[in-house]
Design a binder for these strands. Sequence first.
RNA 1: GGCCUGAUGGCGGAGCGGUGACGCAGCGGAUUGCAAAUCCGUGAAGCCGGGUUCGACUCCCGGUCAGGCCUCCA
Length: 465
Amino acid sequence: MKLHIHDTLTREKVEFTPRDPSRITLYVCGPTVYSYAHIGNARPVVVFDVLFRLLRQLYGQDHVVYARNITDVDDKINKAAMEQGVEIDVITNRFADIYNEDMATLGALRPTLEPRVTHNMDAIVKQIADIVANGHAYAEQGHVLFDVDSFKGYGALSKRSVDDMIAGARVEVAPYKRNAHDFVLWKPSKPGEPVWESPWGPGRPGWHIECSAMIEANLGLPIDIHGGGHDLIFPHHENEIAQGLCAQHSHGHEAQYARYWMHNGFLTMDAEKMSKSLGNVKLVHELIKEVPGEVIRLALLSAHYRGPLDWTGELIAQTRARLDGLYGTLRKVKDLPIVDANVSPAVLEALCDDLNTPRALAELSSLARDIETAGDDATRTAAKAALLAAGRVLGLLQGDADAWFKAGADDDLTAQVEGLLNERTAARAAKNWPEADRIRKALDELGVEVMDSPSGPTWKLKVGA
RNA sequence: GGCCUGAUGGCGGAGCGGUGACGCAGCGGAUUGCAAAUCCGUGAAGCCGGGUUCGACUCCCGGUCAGGCCUCCA
């Protein structure tokens, strides 16, 4: 099965051919760790997690190197550290850990590499030096600026010309810049900020250089796939290309930086842009207290990654209901053995078509129906295996089905429910329907819904109870 | 102003130049002590205006609306 992906550089869906099938390289821009991640930040994480899983499925578990950086040098980090009177690593370690925990709750696998700016300062300084040596950057007043005019390929990714950018003219004009659109590779630190040594004086790296330096140092050019949010196309990824290629001794004009570019669409909140001023920023850290991580994950995968996604209460409710259905089916076959199975070709085909998760999800429903309509346990066991295997590529349905419905119930409640259920089972055995209904009502008041089945009752905690 | 997306049923959301997935909700039936689940069936859509075509939701052109980027941003 051949993977096809929509490449931002050519704006076309193309067949994916890895440079080296035994070492696929994937890089996705990660978080700046000064605060909590919001739900919009989670979309690329989940989307590219599916890509990571798919690539591992197609090329082998050990043949994919997935790097997602952690930006731990940044103005916002400095500000937070200053305000709290601590070193920056107190802030960055704390939020990097929280980030990883929160993303794990969304079912995202840990990337192979999580390079940090502070751990790659040598690579950054070296890359800047290479760019300067190759004549694509200049030092001025403690700054090092990338000379945009020296790189002919500039603007190829974002499809904009340097002239257009000047026309837009919101770029910062500074005395140390030759041209307004030149951007910073290295700059002096302000008093009190962390400082690193460099040939151009003490200071700190600019925003874009970290990614290209870490890619060069950790993955090697060209990487296979570079991913990120749509908003990063310009200037971040455009600048990455310029830096990454101009640091190469070939001057990189014909070389490639990333063989394929993938960008996820934006997420809106009730059709509005998420912004602090509107007060509609949803933090993943808060959201997972009210909504299971898997619901969030499925909701994020319910639309194609390149399209927009509107985050609403209705979306969450519908997604939860859908997952209830899937886990409900799995609960019916929970006592059947788990056997190995191949990922359904239809699911693979959908994902290989530029990560068409909605189509893959539709197939998941079909696989669930196979379980429901199976006539015997052998068929059911095979169908269960097929559903779980398909779920695994999507990072879904790997939890315990019973636990799914009881999530949120503490031990006390569970014991209480089990007790009442036993009483009710006895009442039903005696065909004492009024008593059975009384207990059902009592459970209902506890927020518990009882479902009878030939093999005994099951229950679930009602949402919002 | 420049560049880039998107617009499908009550809601979410795909594919496809000719029979309109899938999910949630609705309706009918089967099943069920009750309830749920499940299965079967069913109603329901393609922003507007042109064009191409035997035929367009699907291709082309022009609008409209919404969102994004051009400044830190997933």
